[in-house]
């Protein structure tokens, strides 16, 4: 036992110079790789953190752009689809909803009434169905006799860019394309009227 112990000690000292040359080359490479991986992972984590803590689009910020294709039977000024940029100069009430969402039912009539109350070239109402299946969406819209344009959220992209926390959620966007108001949960008539008025003033 003791003999072998000595041997391995001798081995490690005696052989060191022989391996030195190959070792040196390896050193820098390994160190660089370690730094690269560590910093890369750090960057990824940091970026993820920024993303996770990113504030949702807030009042005063420019509303994220999107284009929607309406459900069949719906249109805006004869068009089957619309982009948010095309609506500049108008107040946009963007409402996220789903047929499976109970609370959305509380506000459906409110929104429908409001949409009839304002001139269509001043205030545009847009409904976006979140994670909803088409037959149910259509049935829901029929149930509430919704007349303003509604669209499915293809690829769940709009919901993601507005970082909605759930449905219903309503964004009121001013004529300048900036968000005037964000409402989480079902909205009521008074609030809606107040913020639309506010948006129209702010824009002019």
């Amino acid at each position: 036992m003791t003999d072998t112990m000595k041997v391995s000690e001798i081995e490690s000292t005696e052989l060191a110079p022989a391996v030195e040359t190959t070792a040196k080359r390896g050193v820098r490479w390994t160190a660089v790789a370690m730094w690269a991986v560590a910093l890369g992972v750090l960057a990824l984590l940091g970026w993820g953190l920024i993303q996770a803590n990113a504030p949702r689009p807030e009042v005063g910020e420019v509303a994220p752009p999107f284009t929607v294709e309406f459900f069949t039977g719906y249109e805006w000024q004869g068009q089957p689809s619309v982009a948010l940029e095309d609506l500049r100069g108008k107040v946009v009430v963007l409402n996220f909803w789903a047929s499976w969402c109970v609370e959305c039912r509380y506000e459906a009539d409110v929104l429908e009434n409001a949409s009839r109350q304002y001139a269509p070239d001043e205030v545009v109402f847009l409904g976006v169905a979140y994670a909803d299946v088409e037959p149910n969406s259509l049935a829901y819209m029929q149930e509430f006799g919704v007349s303003y344009p509604h669209a499915p959220d293809l690829g769940t992209r709009i919901s993601n860019s507005y970082e909605i926390t759930g449905v219903p959620e309503t964004f009121v966007i001013g004529p300048d394309g900036k968000i005037v108001y964000v409402h989480i949960g079902p909205i009521n008539q008074t609030t809606l009227n107040r913020v639309i008025a506010q948006a129209m003033e702010g824009g002019s």
Binding site: D3, T4, V7, E14, L15, A18
Partner: peptide, 15 residues
């Protein structure tokens, strides 16, 4: 390299 040169015969055997 190591065994024959740096070791006594006894410890070489044990290696």
């Amino acid at each position: 390299a190591v065994v024959p040169t740096t070791l006594s015969p006894a410890s070489a055997a044990s290696v």
